[in-house]
Design a protein around this nucleic acid. Structure first.
Length: 286
DNA sequence: AAGCTCTCCTGATGGC
DNA sequence: TGCCATCAGGAGAGCT
């Protein structure tokens, strides 16, 4: 489940191994992988051909490759199981290989999009004036973006009639946070996932944002270590960094702070993990 | 109108 | 052994 740190590692890999190369051929092996490209697989392949890839960018969990001398970018989202791999031509096709991009050079490698569950995909879009693919203009800056506005985020929380974990996963408020890092940050902040956002004080918001950034930076630090191997760089798998998780997946295990058994609760068709003692449930308002 | 639920997908896993 | 249910979950469509 790639969240922001994993996607950033992939972006760095693309910057190193794919940027500045010219696309020769694109092969779409599964139409669902380009479903966000409404003009279809053939159009997608045709429009990439002959264009040079610029420097990859990222916002939250989205990343994109600008096509030089056009006003368009190839947008990528890894979904839950997507990978962008740089492989030797001779490497056997992965079982869930969806898209292959060959380049007009002699480097001997190609870019592959592999995705078991096909929640992810690639698509081509016009850029906004900010150089952002137009379809993700509604995605907020992420907490590692120097231009992320902490005060605006706080005011947005105050205006919401919602609860804090929903808000953390709302990509139009703050991007890049998924289920895992949301639970981790809430555990560090000792906040229950159903705490209403309307009552957040500025210090509370500031502390929570600090924990979100700490968790992400820690993951990024680990993922960025073994940076020489081609596989590690663009795969992102080693990247499911040996995360030392304090909350996620720890149902029944002792809280690392107080020893109380951690709990798991069904929540929005997924799970929330929390310590019932450190993260007290808010009073029921109904 | 904002908030929330549903849905897409495949493979691993567990119960019977 | 095989079969079915459950779970993993990002994000947009659609409903209230």
């Amino acid at each position: 489940m790639p969240e922001l740190p994993e996607v950033e590692v992939v972006r760095r890999g693309l910057e190193r191994w794919v940027a500045h190369r010219v696309v020769a051929e694109t092969e779409v092996l599964h139409p669902r992988a380009v479903r966000r490209h409404v003009a279809g697989a053939d159009d997608f392949a045709h429009r990439l051909k002959g264009h040079r890839v610029g420097t990859p960018s990222r916002r939250g969990k989205y990343l994109w490759l600008p096509l030089e001398d056009t006003n368009q970018s190839v947008l990528a989202h890894l979904g839950m199981s997507g990978q962008l791999l740089v492989q030797q031509h001779a490497a056997p096709d992965e079982k869930h290989l969806r898209i292959r991009v060959r380049f007009a050079d002699g480097l001997g490698t190609e870019l592959r999009f592999v995705d078991q569950r096909t929640f992810g995909g690639l698509s081509l879009h016009d850029n906004t004036l900010d150089g952002l693919p137009d379809v993700i203009a509604h995605i907020a800056r992420d907490p590692l973006d120097p231009l992320f506005d902490d005060e605006a985020f706080h005011q947005a929380l105050r205006r919401k009639r919602s609860t804090i974990k929903r808000a953390l996963l709302d990509q139009s408020l703050i991007s890049g946070v998924g289920n895992i890092y949301a639970d981790e940050a809430l555990w560090r902040a000792r906040l229950h996932y159903e705490r209403p956002t309307a009552g957040f004080t500025r210090p509370r918001t500031t502390e929570l944002l600090g924990h979100v950034r700490d968790v992400m930076n820690a993951a990024l630090a680990v993922g960025g270590t073994s940076f020489d191997s081609l596989y590690v760089n663009v795969n992102g798998e080693s990247g499911y960094f040996d995360r030392s998780l304090d909350a996620y997946g720890r149902e029944g295990l002792p809280c690392r702070r107080c020893g109380t058994p951690m709990r798991r609760r069904p929540w929005m068709n997924r799970s929330s993990y929390f310590c019932p003692k450190c993260q007290r449930a808010p009073r029921v308002s109904s």
